[in-house]
Design a protein around this nucleic acid. Sequence first.
DNA 1: GCAATCTACTAAATATATTTAGCAAAAAAA
DNA 2: TTTTTTTGCTAAATATATTTAGTAGATTGC
Lengths: 333, 333
Amino acid sequence: MKKRVLISDIAKALGISVTTVSFILNDKAKEKRISDALTKRVLDYVNKVGYKPNQLAKSLRTGQTKILGLLVEDIANPFFSNVAKHIERRAYETGYHIIYCSMDNDEHKAKELIQLFMDRQVDGFIITPSEGLEDTIANIKQNNIPLVLFDRFVPSVETNYVVSDNRRGSYDATKHLLEGGNKRIGLISLYSNQTQMRDRLDGYMEAMDEFRVQSFIKKLNLDTSEGESQEQIREFVVDNKLDAVLFATNYLAVDGLKALKEHKTTLPKMVAFDEHTLFKLHDPSITVVSQDIEQLTRELIHTLIAEITGKLKEVRQLTIPCQLIIRESSTSS
Amino acid sequence: MKKRVLISDIAKALGISVTTVSFILNDKAKEKRISDALTKRVLDYVNKVGYKPNQLAKSLRTGQTKILGLLVEDIANPFFSNVAKHIERRAYETGYHIIYCSMDNDEHKAKELIQLFMDRQVDGFIITPSEGLEDTIANIKQNNIPLVLFDRFVPSVETNYVVSDNRRGSYDATKHLLEGGNKRIGLISLYSNQTQMRDRLDGYMEAMDEFRVQSFIKKLNLDTSEGESQEQIREFVVDNKLDAVLFATNYLAVDGLKALKEHKTTLPKMVAFDEHTLFKLHDPSITVVSQDIEQLTRELIHTLIAEITGKLKEVRQLTIPCQLIIRESSTSS
DNA sequence: GCAATCTACTAAATATATTTAGCAAAAAAA
DNA sequence: TTTTTTTGCTAAATATATTTAGTAGATTGC
């Protein structure tokens, strides 16, 4: 186990000062008028001994960690794990790394983790805010830590955010079902004040009202067990004799499919939010409102890096269109 | 934006030395014989002003970052995202955090990332080693950085690892298909020297040989496009008139399902490796060799933390049993 | 009564970089 | 020639903790 080379070792070996080496390594040779000859000599030596600066010391001094904190609802949800993959790749290309966690809709854990990440001096936050986090989000803002909310936002605090056009996506999906001749169309959603849920409800309502049709809405608790939620979904669909159902999240749709599969109920027409491998391959394949993960993550990282580097002059609030991908579940008889 | 409180601010405010405050904050008050009265006074004050030590300074001094580096093949693969979720939760409970990345079977990226994480002084590594990483893994070992390999290992380097019993899982699955009366059973795998792939092949072979039956093996390139691999899978199944297929990974099975679905081929009997929401809900539901993520991640974190804290006296190499979950795809006619 | 031990702390060194302020020599301007 | 500017580099301060070695005074031992 060979000892780590320090910047002072390099300075000593070449008979020059630590300052000079530091300038050269941080691309300030020109600016600080270090001669080309010396610059080359240092660079060659650094290369030869394979010197890598201690990032902790560097971060301590500069205040920049080049680490971003990612807090998502659930990293095992394919939507979020896909997002995580894209974010990580884009961050890597920009020289940043990602430290992450799942918040599991646990307010206490979420708060603790945000505090822990702040103590670790992350350069910025990407957060899908769960309920009860208004104060914490406001606190991040007050501390001037770059932040972009994602998937949903907190109306009471003015922050950057990048979300999908959930209202429009939901409206399009509902309208699609209505135009298919379905009369009794239900929405299965969650007891949640989060903006994406509210918007999905709004879009559904708008389309239903436009067609002057009665709405059927079922909300589940966030902490409902899988079995329980399946039972409730089945009841809701059967009791109301629904022709079609719009599921407000991918896992609700998965629960719905399980429920309907197990009980041999004839499948109503359906549309789900978010893409999922299952939805493409299911028989019948499932129509979905698909969020544009490419664009969402591109804007997300772009906005965050812009704020970190001070290039962002004003709050950036983006709404990205969704795409309705029509498959068998909403069309075939 | 209020200024950060430093340990020196506390010392000054209370008229005592920084050393004393540090001892108290690091639970060394008793050991260093700081009086109870003073200890309480400091703790109360720290609490009042909400002091949080700068983790960078702390890490720089102690050499401990409390950060683990997680390098997986692909965080968007549901198997790995599930693993990531469990690992993160267990790490959090132990006071550690996770910095992650996907290696995407890119040897160059993998090496660069491992180096970057080493420069960031992660306390330990969790790696699913892709090919060509032998030297890098050996290097981590040489530098005495705690390390646990996962899902597969590198035979040429003696390291800790936690993997599933792939040979046995594959053997059981194949035997199950053989006992179901299937004669022509194919294995669809990858051109890969990784241990998990080799073991899955071995298990298949062992069962086939035991029954004195001809084997059919198709290997795909890692970088085969989705369309191309679907075509190859279809050809392999059709040309060989296979009764049943064992897929060596979940995404191969997904590709297989897509291929067979699109070409309206009658589905052969099949078993897939790894669990997937799709497999439970597909019609017919898919029999799988399921890895025990709970136990795998528990042992993983336990081993890594043990090595970090110096409690691990010798290399720890664990093989966790898989479970064959029999569903419709391998049984119903 | 004096040495030895214990109590309750603290000054200074350390971890490893970056950055500010400044100096001596050389070159240019007056 | 003297003054000013530029060139090329460096000493010391800084970022914020932890840890080692030690000290002054109180207590104990003989």
